[in-house]
Design a protein around this nucleic acid. Structure first.
Lengths: 211, 211
DNA sequence: ATTTATATGTGAAATTATTCACAATATATC
DNA sequence: GATATATTGTGAATAATTTCACATATAAAT
């Protein structure tokens, strides 16, 4: 059995999104070709991805929509609520704090942290607490996931704090490339970089770019 | 000469970020190994990436920091301001509207659009206009780039409107995978998918995932 | 000026990811 | 029930990407 890589898991998420839409259209079963269209990949890729996880369908019968969704939910951790903390209640942080997509998807930001006292709101639905309290909070509540949305110069330090408290996975929006280590997975999302990418390829005119 | 792919351009952006930081530390020259560290790649990768663009350094002397930054700026479109429009003034849209990283990086959101009249602010620094006015605006101002931050069900339609008006590159935050076409580059950024990715690999424990 | 040490630039090799193609088999049809 | 048809599952083939490794050049040292 092959190990899935990052892009494979990303595709699984896309398949799941597609299945949810197809279920809403009363699809009882779904074919690799349908998912391929919805996720902009080939049907062979869909089946290969499924085979990594031992997901099987029926020859000529495709996949049972409900069954498939259940299996993807399990793989992607959708079988329970995922608690996560957010550090940096600035521009991006505030938007993430109230992003409805997270709640819809079983991801719950349980607390926010900042160094700026004017940001503190201890009694809110999602409390905003002093950064000094983060370590305790993580340990007391056994949090394993974090989002970093602080300025670049503070990101590395926040990461170290998170790791020392037991965080195992981080989504980083600070415009600096945080390095992942054996004990902590990192996903760097740099909004400027994403835009620079489309600027480049839009300028190039023809978009014959790879994956 | 090889064609650069998406990940190559993303790496170039990272190298650029690193160079800016190193310049602030008064580095006059920089080695592939330095950039590799900062961007979490290998030194050979850095040199291969540069060779695609004909960027050369000096054997045993590395790269002149200023010169290198200039070349990367040119490739990434930093030699001029990039004007871009934003559709969807919701949670994420508002954050992007005032994201300081864009301005710092020569990216200027020139107008926002929404279907909700309560969002309109015609006389603001960045005007928020009715969606019906987007087509004209794009053509009058010769805009080539757009950001989509609308709900999933509206994203495809907004994309079609953008394309018909002449947009050539789109950064999409709606949680649906928009398909790119020969005349328009698309970058899909799905926040939930990004998180699901770290949820999966953090749970897996060891993070021996590929690129 | 000569030597030495070190970093580049790049083909070749290795690795990783994707697509092809088809046997196996289940569904649908008659 | 038999037959035709469509879709899976997967090894093999291909393609893409990354790493290796070293000849080449150049900066620094003596």
């Amino acid at each position: 059995m092959n190990m899935p890589n990052r892009t494979c898991i990303m595709r699984l998420s896309r398949y799941r999104n597609a299945i949810i839409r197809l279920k809403a259209l009363n699809f009882v079963r779904v074919f690799s070709d349908n998912l391929a269209d919805a996720a902009s990949v080939t049907a062979a890729q869909v089946r290969k991805d499924f085979s990594i996880f031992g997901i099987t369908g029926h020859r000529r019968g495709g996949y049972q929509t409900d069954d498939l969704l259940g299996q993807l939910n399990k793989i992607l951790g959708k079988d329970r609520t995922q608690d996560i903390i957010l550090v940096g209640i600035g521009n991006i942080g505030k938007a993430l704090l109230h992003y409805p997509g997270f709640e819809k998807s079983g991801i719950r930001i349980v607390a926010g942290f900042d160094i700026d006292p004017t940001k503190y709101v201890a009694d809110a639905n999602i409390p905003i607490l002093p950064l000094e309290k983060m370590h305790d909070y993580i340990q007391t509540n056994n949090i394993k996931l974090g989002i970093i949305a602080v300025p670049d110069y503070a990101a590395q330090q926040v990461l170290e704090m998170m790791k020392s408290a037991g965080i195992k996975g981080v989504l980083n929006f600070a415009p600096i490339c945080l390095r992942e280590s054996a004990d902590c997975v990192i996903n760097n999302v740099n909004l400027v970089t994403e835009l620079e990418n489309i600027i480049y390829f839009a300028k190039a005119g023809d978009n014959t770019r790879g994956k």
